[in-house]
């Protein structure tokens, strides 16, 4: 999947870094769908996606002076995205608690508006739902690898971890998924003989 082309983005980024609002809108338009979907897949609560996306762009603007043109913009942006989703998860006091003294049930997903419920109804395959049950660190590598189709190197750069850690997390994630959906029972699919068939 072709996500973002650095060569096409760099001229706009330079203008944006100079404070050109039109360039910012161009960069936003070019990147926002990918950021939105990445956040959508990473976040636990789909009602927060738009808010988190805004946090990503605020962080991007604040981090602009630190961007170096020799680095991959996609990896840099992915790093910001993953951190903001993680921050949101930590910050957000939400969800699903029966508070002894609150005396009212707080449920996980805010009741959706009609349009949002359709959105929810179009939710994905069982496989992607299983991905959502993975711990955040494993979910991150799955989303970057299989949604964004990033290389190990790009994932490592985005997450600021060694490539070996990326491979290890990916292996763990796949193993957990296998376990969850029991695809290991079928020899024709999954990790045959434990070998990792990860796209290079």
């Amino acid at each position: 999947m072709s996500v973002m082309n650095d060569n096409e983005l760099h001229p706009w980024l330079r203008r944006m870094m100079d404070g050109d609002p039109a360039a910012f809108r161009e960069v936003y338009a070019a990147t926002q769908p990918f950021v939105y979907r990445t956040v959508y897949y990473l976040s636990g609560n789909k009602d927060d996606v738009s808010d988190i996306v805004s946090e990503v762009y605020i962080a991007l603007i604040q981090s602009l002076p630190s961007y170096r043109f020799e680095q991959s913009f996609r990896s840099w942006l992915n790093g910001i995205t993953v951190r903001q989703v993680s921050n949101w998860r930590r910050k957000l006091w939400r969800i699903m608690r029966l508070n002894q003294r609150n005396r009212l049930l707080t449920v996980d997903m805010p009741a959706s508006l009609p349009g949002e419920r359709l959105f929810e109804a179009e939710r994905d395959s069982e496989l992607l739902q299983q991905v959502e049950c993975l711990p955040a660190k494993l979910r991150e590598v799955i989303v970057l690898r299989y949604y964004q189709e990033c290389s190990y190197e790009e994932i490592a750069e985005a997450l600021n971890v060694p490539e070996g850690t990326v491979k290890s997390r990916l292996h763990s994630a796949i193993a957990k998924l296998r376990s969850q959906i029991k695809i290991g029972e079928h020899s024709a699919i999954g990790l045959e003989g434990g070998a990792e068939h990860v796209h290079s």
């Binding site: 999947m1 910012f24 809108r25 936003y28 926002q32 769908p33 939105y36 979907r37 959508y40 897949y41 996606v49 738009s50 996306v53 805004s54 762009y57 605020i58 603007i61 959105f119 179009e122 939710r123 994905d124 395959s125 496989l127 992607l128 991905v131 799955i142 989303v143 690898r145 299989y146 949604y147 189709e149 796949i174 998924l177 296998r178 695809i183 699919i189 999954g190 990790l191 068939h197 990860v198 796209h199």
Partner: peptide, 30 residues
């Protein structure tokens, strides 16, 4: 189909259905 291909395909199909919603334009804070 391997689990890797299944994941890639699942994300491709899913991504085609997920729109930017309210975030299509930068909000006031951004």
């Amino acid at each position: 189909m391997s689990i890797h291909d299944r994941l890639t395909e699942a994300y491709r199909q899913s991504a085609s259905r997920i729109g930017p919603g309210q975030a299509a334009n930068p909000d006031a804070r951004v």
